[in-house]
Simulated assay, not measured.
Amino acid sequence: MGSIERKKSPELQAYPMKGGDGDSSYTNNSSYQKSLSEVAMSLINEAITEKLEVENFTSEHPLCIADLGCSVGPNTFIVVKNIINSVKLKYHTLTIPTPEFQVFFNDHASNDFNTLFKTLQTEKQYYAAGVPGSFYDRLFPCSSVHVIHSSFAIHWLSKVPDEVMEKGSPTYNKGRVHYVGSDEEVVKAYQRQYVKDMDGFLKARAEEVVRGGLVVVLVPGRPNEVPHSECIGNVLFEVLGSCLLNMAKEGKIEDGKVDSLNIPIYYASPQEVEEIVDRNGYFTIERIEGLPHIAEPETKHAAKRLTMGIRVGVEAVLKGYLEDEIIDGLFDSYCKRLEQVPSLFSSGGAAILFCVLRRNEK
């Protein structure tokens, strides 16, 4: 495979999920992600059965699997086990000798790899290794990985778009922490950053994936017909931003901190993803669809779970701007607001995109 021209960005930002195994950790607040991963398991099995070209692989070398944005578990271990079982079944069906398995767990260097590997089972079907680094850059040698998986990760941008931080510019995102409700220029800045990041993601994977290998992605997004303003993820961030503004009005935090705080997340539609993959040219989309929305029951307990789920995701972003006690107060206020708008839990503006990409031969 020829070399792919790609520029490495020195400005990548890292906001890992909250580590450890405490009450407020990602480990204990990722049941929603787990439920969607379980829904996707049968689809992953089908993709491996129908599209993974194991007959072109050699059993003399390990079959390599990578989970990008693995966080701290246990969800990553469940997914990896499912992938390996599906691959083994395909080898068995084709009466081909099953190779050994090597699994790479990837996340930013600041991820809590200690907790990840402490909870790794000693009796497993594979050799395990941690790979620190951004998945928007190269992580593995050329043509070395057979199956790449990423779940609830690539909606995170590599960084906040530079334009939205420039005071006096048309894209300066004053008074908001996200692009929803902002001027169209701000939305376009986020979209441009997403396109740039996804192009980098695809080019890096194109060099790493073997011929006949697959990239499987599960990521929050929005249906094609749903505008950004009605996407549930965006609405949740808009509520969080309003809570921050109220705290600023009360003098608990400085206005400037709200103005300079932006959450680097973008919710793409299936159409946007298809256009990026087609334009990139290194992969063919074998399957792309939205998974069924799993609605929370409209209860106060649901509001608390949703609050904690948002917190473990964005707390690393907030810590660069706010003290711990301010963050605690922010999410207390946020939870109360969510209790007042239970309709959010059954919003139709949500989509979890499931996408299977096959590496093109040319």
Rank of each mutant, 00 (worst) to 15 (best):
I96V: 05
V79T: 09
H92G: 00
A109G: 00
L139I: 12
F117S: 02
N82D: 12
L94W: 06
C70I: 05
T76I: 02
E100M: 13
T93L: 11
T115D: 03
K81A: 12
F77Q: 03
I83K: 07
F117K: 03
L120H: 00
L120M: 11
F117P: 01
H61N: 13
L68N: 05
S134Q: 09
V79M: 04
K90G: 02
I83V: 15
I78Q: 04
A129K: 04
Q102G: 08
A128S: 14
N75R: 03
G69T: 08
K124M: 05
V80H: 03
P132A: 04
D67H: 10
N75M: 00
A129W: 03
K118C: 11
V80E: 03
T122Q: 14
K124W: 01
C64S: 14
A129P: 03
N114V: 04
L63M: 15
H92L: 13
V147A: 09
V103A: 09
G130H: 01
A129Q: 08
V80Q: 04
I148D: 05
Y126R: 00
N85H: 12
V103I: 04
T76K: 08
N106K: 02
E123K: 12
S150N: 00
F104Y: 15
F77N: 07
F117M: 06
Y91H: 14
T119L: 11
I148M: 15
K118L: 13
V80P: 02
D137H: 15
I65L: 11
F140Q: 01
L68D: 04
I78F: 07
Y91C: 01
S143L: 01
H61C: 11
C142P: 00
F77W: 12
E123S: 14
